[in-house]
Design a protein around this nucleic acid. Structure first.
Length: 552
RNA sequence: GCCCCGGUAGCUCAACUGGACAGAGCAUCGCCCUUCUAAGGCGAGGGUUACAGGUUCGAGUCCUGUCCGGGGUACCA
């Protein structure tokens, strides 16, 4: 039932490894770990091994000679699905997989449909992905967009592999930021009703604050006192609605919102301090409360509670993670911006000191988005009201483009975003290349119907022998492997690269091989092929959260 | 100063985690629509993978140093 392709190629690989091992022992060569991987160039076949290169030193013989000897030995036994074995400099042994292997594989894909390529790794397991987690002090920026898309896609990847995923948004509703937000709204409110009021020094200067103040004025009238808590709570509510609307446009929804305040109310923070204290990891200095991080292998101690009595964010964050651990997830993923690089290890260290398991926590750090306008950097600051919102970007380009744009490059790389080119880029965005392939296939299938070639699973896949057909099928066969790799690395970019290649193979095939022709049986077989391409494209796009249009 | 992430074609980025002659898209220049969608295909040009060493049969990838960009090094988040 859950034997997908993975198993097919794995089986093939296992057989090859077994055969190579047998050959080694027959030849009295030492045992050694070696790789078995697809080569770069087509002419080297489908799978290559470097075993001869590795043996060269021990045997003090040229790798090419060793490769020949091993290849000859392997050729003596008939290996299933292997058409040919060749040797190429500097000493690779290449295996050519026969067409029937690939032809059979598309039957598997059609049978599995949207289950094709799913592993069972996460079956009966739970995962928590915390992302966005922006404090409700302003609209989401382009930078938050990177976080949002990354987190949601990682969650999709986990779900693909069977994990039951909780998407979680954690935010700070207790600290100084929200305090300042309230004061900013209050100041704008009094400005609005004509009473001169001093704007807080660190206040939020964005226009949206004025709008919120107007909302409050319209809803609650003009006799509110300066320190009324509703300035803060109303602002939080309104901003949160905006944030949710933006995320909604990206198709991102959360299962749980967790407020920092909770951890004060439940006593979790107090408890945490006590527990750390009993481990002698907390001390007082200069009126502040410190975490003895140096005792945990960190470079410096950190303040947990300022001398003003306010905690720093590390304290509630630690309590929050402790609570997340207690919920028993098999995997916990945090999506953080590069500014957290130096802070999350403190949190993990503190948790480990409390004898909590932390090795199932994966922290994904993404580098910042730099915005360019007319070649100049736009410095973003929510507080100063200088930012480009995610909404702006979405209305200009659309969800599919934004999602693809944020996922197609490595999270470890800085992202230069040229606003002037944003729209231009969106018109020749590579995401359309993928979607176009999908739409083309849908159209072919439709065309087949009008030509009375209804696609059925009853066709002869052995008719698919054209070189472009084989290349296309080979690409389809890689898919489960790609999904496995991505599960390990949690770098969604690999999917984008793969789909790009798959679409390219399809477009080439399309140029060379006509699907619907007078040759009925060939037409049926090719319909089977393009249908399986459609399945994989559709799966890949849905994992990326991108639509797979039937026409464009 | 120290720590983290980058530096690859004119521009934006890949490169299956150490493999074979480093690949795409934009941009430039050719060619291909009376035939399933030209948002496509085919071809040309464009590179000392920042630099210098080292490890290895083999380095864009690993180690050391230098330079450049970003982030951190807060009783900000």
């Amino acid at each position: 039932m859950r034997r997908g392709w993975s198993l097919l190629i794995k089986k093939l690989k296992a057989i090859l490894i077994e055969s190579i091992r047998a050959a080694l022992s027959a030849l009295n060569f030492p045992e050694m770990d070696f790789t078995l991987a697809p080569p770069k160039a087509e002419k080297f076949g489908d799978i290559s091994t470097n075993i001869a290169l590795l043996l060269s030193k021990d045997l003090s013989q040229p790798p090419l000679d060793i490769a020949e000897i091993i290849a000859e030995t392997l050729k003596k036994e008939k290996l299933n699905h292997i058409d040919d074995i060749t040797v190429s400099p500097p000493g690779f042994i290449n295996f050519l997989i026969d067409a029937s292997f690939y032809q059979n594989s598309i039957i598997t894909i059609l049978e599995k449909n949207d289950q094709y390529g799913r592993g069972g790794t996460g079956k009966d397991k739970t995962a928590n992905v915390e992302f966005v987690s922006a404090n409700p002090t302003g609209p989401l920026t382009v930078g938050h967009g990177r976080n949002a898309v990354l987190g949601d896609t990682v969650a999709n990847i986990l779900e693909w592999h069977g994990f039951h995923v909780t998407r979680e948004y954690y935010y700070n509703d207790a600290g100084q930021q929200m305090q300042i937000l309230g004061e900013s709204v209050s100041a704008r409110y009094f400005e609005l009703i004509g009473k001169e009021n001093e704007f807080p020094e660190n206040g939020y200067q964005g226009k949206y604050i004025v709008e919120i103040a107007r909302n409050i004025y319209e809803a609650l009238g003009n006799d509110i006192s300066k320190n009324d808590p509703r300035f803060r709570t109303e602002a939080e509510k309104i901003i949160f609605e905006k944030i949710k609307t933006s995320l909604d446009k990206l198709g991102i929804y959360f299962d749980q919102f967790t407020k920092e305040k909770t951890f004060y109310e439940t006593g979790a923070i107090k408890q945490l301090l006590e527990d750390l204290k009993s481990k002698d990891l907390i001390y007082e200095k200069e009126g502040a409360t410190w975490l003895k991080a140096t005792a945990l292998g960190r470079k410096q101690d950190r303040v947990f509670i300022k001398s003003s009595g306010e905690p720093t964010y590390r304290l509630p964050d630690t309590a929050y993670h402790r609570e997340k651990i207690s919920r028993g997830f098999n995997l916990i993923v945090d999506i953080f911006g590069a500014d957290h690089t130096d802070s999350y290890p403190d949190i993990l260290a503190a948790l480990a000191a409390l004898d909590l398991k932390t090795d199932h926590i994966r922290v994904l750090l993404y580098q910042f988005v730099t915005l360019l306008r007319k070649g100049e950097k736009v410095k973003m600051s929510t507080r100063k009201g200088e930012f480009v919102t995610l909404d702006n970007l979405l209305t200009e380009t659309g969800s599919d483009v934004v999602r693809y744009f944020f996922i197609m490059r490595s999270m470890n790389s800085h992202l230069d975003f040229d606003l002037d080119l944003a729209k231009d880029q969106s018109e020749n965005n590579p995401v359309y290349y993928l979607q176009y392939a999908h739409a083309r296939i849908c159209n072919i299938i439709k065309h087949g119907l009008t030509a009375k070639y209804e696609f059925t699973k009853d066709f002869d896949s052995n008719l698919l022998t054209h070189n472009d057909e084989l290349k296309l099928m080979r690409q389809l066969v890689y898919f489960p492997q790609v999904m496995e790799t991505v599960l390990e690395t949690l770098e969604p970019q690999g999917i984008a690269n793969y789909l790009q290649e798959l679409a390219a193979q399809f477009h080439k095939f399309y140029g060379k091989c006509r699907v619907i022709t007078d040759n009925i049986s060939l037409s049926r077989a090719r319909l089977g092929l393009v249908s399986s391409v459609r399945i994989v494209l559709s799966s890949g796009l849905s994992i990326l959260g991108i639509s797979a249009p039937e026409r464009m």
